[in-house]
């Protein structure tokens, strides 16, 4: 495995070497990726924090919202027991798409031919 990696290192060169040799350039590259992925994760957590985490607070300060009914079902029941699950899946799906895009951008940057 190590031999394979070091063999490849000689051939590929460029940004790949910067990464594996942990030069300052390589370090900056990977820090950028980590920051982008963390920012993405935090942004989507904020969406959930407001979208779901805000509900108990909303019901607590505005009891009338809790008493509203939609199709004969009280709003809190509808939101929590039914709609929260598709909401979570949608956030997860968005994350997977955007995280993969971040990684693709990083890969393109690293594998860009040297000029």
């Amino acid at each position: 495995m190590l031999a394979e990696v070091s063999g490849r290192r000689h051939r590929a060169g460029g940004a790949r070497t910067e990464l594996t040799q942990q030069t300052r350039v390589g370090e900056t590259l990977i820090r950028g990726l980590v920051r982008a992925q963390l920012a993405l994760a935090l942004q989507l957590s904020a969406v959930v924090l407001v979208g779901l985490g805000g509900l108990p607070w909303l019901f607590a300060i505005a009891p009338s919202v809790g008493r509203m009914t939609v199709l004969g079902v009280n709003l809190p029941w509808l939101l929590l027991a039914v709609l929260s699950f598709p909401f979570l899946v949608a956030v997860g799906w968005t994350y997977v798409r955007l995280a993969e895009r971040n990684e693709q951008d990083f890969t393109d940057l690293v594998q860009r031919p040297e000029r």
Partner: peptide
């Protein structure tokens, strides 16, 4: 209604894990 957070949280745990 207050314990509906159990199923929501049990599922949302996977979102935190994913993120």
């Amino acid at each position: 209604v207050d314990v509906l957070w159990y199923p929501v949280g049990f599922a949302a745990g996977y979102l935190a894990l994913l993120l």
